[in-house]
Amino acid sequence: MGWFGKTEGIKEELAERLREASRTNNGDIHVIPTEGKWAVRKEGAAKSSKVLLDKKDAIKEAKELIKTEHSKVIVHNYDGTINKSVE
């Protein structure tokens, strides 16, 4: 049994928020380890904006791509989880 136990309402509420997030582009920029390099990808984009050898350079590049004040740079770990978010 998971953390939401038998509360189907919470499960469905989370699923609805996920569906909404999946459809919505809030302008975040992701820095993702890819093939031994670091890909800079705008949320939902078909291709990476840039692929760089150095992680720090990729984060710097990602910061420059941010368009709105609510957007952030999301740096990922090698397993896809979040390493850090940079506002």
């Binding site: 996920l18 997030a21 992701h30 993702i32 990476s48 999301i74 990922h76 896809g80 989880t81």
Partner: peptide
């Protein structure tokens, strides 16, 4: 490459929510 990027984005959405 696309599936890997999408997986990363999914985990980002999930952890954020």
């Amino acid at each position: 490459k696309l599936i890997w990027a999408e997986f990363n984005e999914f985990l980002s959405d999930l952890s954020d929510i």
